[in-house]
Amino acid sequence: MAHQSFAKTVCDTLKEAARTGGGEVAVAELSCLLWLQTRKEHKRLLNTLSDLTRGGKVIRVRQGVYAEATTTAPPAKREVMWRLLKMRRRVTVDDLVELAGVSLDYAREWLAILVKREVVRKIQEPGGMWVLINDSAEMPVDDDKAAVLRLLRVQKKAELAGRIDTIENELKAVKKTIAEL
């Protein structure tokens, strides 16, 4: 199963809670639903909600109360291609380019990923046609790219933590020197 980000988990939980709770959800309620126990986790939730509000996925009704944004952003090109593939069951690169408005290279790259995942099979015809062979409800995600991005994020975080440690050590040394003086 593909890794799900914390932001997506928050977003999904908020949507679910909003549906049952009259369209609005309090942060405390959301925190309980997500089993968040420490102050640090709660702070992370608040930051995520703030990011989601900025991204237009969530709206802030009033202080501490959020709701699902009614005006949703247009679907990503990848989602449009996935929908077209599900509708048509067999597509050509030209179909994707024409109906999803993507570039030829992007459509080819996406189909190659799906071939690798055994979601589609290429029929060798002049021009090439791809047939859907595994119709799953969820759109396949590009795990390789996501893994690379995750790795980059971890590396960046480690680098920043290292810098903070160095600064803290230096600060301690300065404090020690001041105390000695």
Binding site: T72, P74, P75, E79, V80, M81, R83, L84, M87, R88, L99, A100
Partner: peptide
Amino acid sequence: TRTAQWYAANNRCAF
């Protein structure tokens, strides 16, 4: 069909 599929795919509609 093409028009309906184009619209449905770009607006998250079922077809």
